[in-house]
């Protein structure tokens, strides 16, 4: 093989190594950097460019919402256990199990409504444009998954039909 070609290939490899090494080292250093104190709201401040006053309002709403959310979660978890017990009792979906499932659904709906109300309240605590963006993003993240599941249902139906 031509000597110059060998040297050129070696230089290219060396260059790729230098580039990859710098990239990996920088990522490593950034990962080692002590992460900002585990503040759940740090993302809001950075993403929606919130000032201290906005952050104070958002933090108050957030701290007020968390206990309600935790309480709802505990109720849902308890209801899920009841549903599991009702279903484990027999091989049929009994009237009691159906009632528990309905209660679970109601609880989830209430919890979701409460969550959306919180998002609306937080969006109002932000500058209007940022608030609109925040609300759209939260609805996309929290409700978008349901839409995806629902969209996939006809496909699933077709698959079931094939079975």
């Amino acid at each position: 093989m031509n000597r110059s070609l060998v040297i050129l290939l070696g230089l290219l490899l060396l260059g790729a190594g230098v580039f990859a090494g710098s990239y990996v080292a920088t990522r490593h250093v950034c990962a080692m950097k002590p992460a900002s104190p585990a503040d759940d709201l740090s993302w809001l401040r950075d993403e929606f460019h919130l000032g201290d006053a906005d952050m104070a309002r958002v933090r108050e709403l957030h701290n007020g919402y968390l206990p309600k959310c935790a309480e709802m979660c505990a109720q849902i978890a308890a209801k899920k256990r009841e549903v599991a017990d009702a279903l484990a009792a027999g091989t049929n979906v009994t009237a009691s199990a159906q009632a528990k499932l309905k209660e679970l659904g109601d609880l989830r709906a209430r919890c979701q409504a409460q969550m959306l109300e919180h998002f609306v309240a937080v969006s109002r605590a932000m500058p209007p444009e940022q608030g609109k963006r925040y609300l759209a993003e939260m609805q996309r993240v929290t409700l978008g998954l349901h839409e995806e599941v629902e969209r996939s249902m006809p496909e699933m139906g077709t698959m079931h039909g094939r079975d």
């Binding site: 992460a35 993403e47 979660c73 979701q112 969550m115 998002f119 993240v141």
Partner: peptide, 20 residues
């Protein structure tokens, strides 16, 4: 990556998995 982690942390705090 850090932004995505922070976003995931916030969403996990306000929207538990059981609702999503």
């Amino acid at each position: 990556s850090a932004q995505h982690e922070a976003e995931a942390r916030y969403i996990a705090a306000v929207a538990p998995n059981s609702l999503r």
